[in-house]
Design a protein around this nucleic acid. Structure first.
Lengths: 181, 181, 181, 181
DNA sequence: TATGAATGAGCCTTCATTCAT
DNA sequence: GATGAATGAAGGCTCATTCAT
């Protein structure tokens, strides 16, 4: 029943889904939804919580505490990607939440991201950790990853306004710097 | 006038803002909004476009094409952070789009992100590019960046379902790998 | 509840009536109207359909299939007039649909009709089927009927553009011709 | 300029046409429309008046006052049909006014009219004024005319409530009666 | 005179939410 | 415990109408 809600939310966004639809998809009546969850928002949160718990558990289970850092990281990443692969709805809500995927609202942002990412391609021309030069696809992926890193650190910075801009830039640079070394 | 819309959207999200409010905040009447932008969606897009263009221009202007890659990247990052600093509203829309930040919907996701990030702290214990060990704050920032990189590459992967999971994991790992080297 | 809608539509026209008013007049809430009929248009159509079905049934019931043509016609006409008499709202919608009767828009048209009708009075000076000469009132009624016949056949002609004008005129004339014989 | 308004009104109905459109179609600015006509309604009425005057004049000119009744009627009918043929917009407004032609609002009524008309076909099986039996098309036309006569006389009756129903029925019947004789 | 720009008012429609059963 | 029926509150959008120029 909570899965039906999650699927609907993930596919069409929080606002585009009505409680009627969720109730219908779950095969129960609307007042029951309210009995169990209290409100649309709380229903949404319940689903996100469940999804988050699952992801976290998967990652924890994968990372053997006794293993060295590298191995733990590698296992964690694999667990993360496995989760993404197997729980599309959950991932969509966790990452994109109400990105209005598909709607015209998201297209602009996606386009901008790609243009910025493309500016980064030269950066990966001789990326370590891969013997030969990287192919186009890998460049795309890494550039996207780097853009995500930048977005995320910028957002972190918003919540730590004391940090000087230059230091944040240096930290972010060290990601790429590590590579360029 | 378009700024008023942007501020409102950034602060409360696309769906939570009504055209009445935007019109009031902009000091004009609702039909004018429709005269200029045609619909709520198009108004939103117009703002996002403007914000995106500005950010892109700022970054392009900052990166001297004649400079070496490292310098260009560094300058671009600084320009990016400057933009984030000076255009809070624009940045909020570009990054979080409709993440419903502020609403209780985002709190869960933020908490999850932090718990995952915390799993990464050990990774940065001897991070290169900084002579001494990193302080707590820097760890946070880098972990957040890494989480962002992971999210972003996972999302990229969703649009390139052909790539094997292991390869994506390896690419993401190479970020950390470069550091741990 | 559907009657309230019909009355309102008949009295003031489709566009002049708001769903709020209908809901208020019916003693229910607006969302209920939408629950039952889906849209203003479908509510309107539902009423027209009901009215039309009633009229048709009344006429059918009145015309005994075993009776000769004359008797059937006579009975049908009486049933028709009875319906008009007893279902003012239904009739108004069926005949005038959106003629905006009541609004100042209809006055012009009514005046024109009358002036044309008046041109026809001489036609009925010795109308058969009534022994003595027709009084003023009957002339009016017959003239109005003739005008209606003309309007209707003209409209029919618009949908059958192949027919030569002269033939249509002859057919219409045969109404009067029959009388004048 | 007033023609542009008429065309628009006739094609899409009073309510579906906006003053913006009329102004644009007429090649002038909206305030000019208001300068000349004062309001949308008065603009509409102005057009209807003009159309009505034209029709009436055409019919008057056609009917030579010196000619016998039959000839005058015949000429008048021809003039009427000619007007309908040559002034579609004018006729549409005079007859159907805001019948929402094409819209789903009119379909129901048109269907009902046809079903009633079809009940009348037997009536015209041996219609005088045409030597041989009437073909299908002529039956349609006459039935439509008769339906129009009925509608019109019923409407006349609504404004003369004193008349007994039976008398109205007799008058209407005499139309057909003349034929059946 | 002619208009671009502006608006007050209102309408259709939807939805989260709750009773009465 | 479960639901069908009902609603208050808003929201996006349009349009006839008018100033200021």
């Amino acid at each position: 029943m909570l899965d039906a809600a999650g699927r609907a939310f993930a596919e069409r966004g929080f606002h585009a889904v009505s409680m009627d639809e969720i109730a219908a998809a779950a095969g129960i009546s609307k007042p029951m939804l309210y009995n169990y969850f209290g409100s649309k928002e709380r229903l949404y949160i319940a689903y996100v919580e469940q999804a988050g718990r699952t992801l976290l558990d998967d990652m924890r289970k994968a990372a053997d505490p006794a293993a060295p850092v590298q191995a733990r990281l590698s296992a964690g990443i694999l667990a993360f990607l496995t989760y993404v692969d197997e729980h599309r709805a959950g991932w969509a809500l966790l990452y994109q939440e109400a990105t209005n995927q598909g709607g015209p609202l998201a297209a602009e942002v996606a386009a901008l991201r790609e243009r910025i990412a493309r500016m980064l391609y030269p950066l990966f021309d001789d990326w370590p950790g891969s013997d030969e030069g990287l192919d186009e696809t890998a460049c795309e992926a890494l550039a996207s990853a780097f853009v995500g890193a930048g977005e995320s650190i910028a957002n972190w910075w918003l919540h730590h306004p004391g940090e000087p801009k230059e230091r944040v830039a240096a930290l972010l640079l060290s990601f790429a710097g590590a590579a360029a070394r």
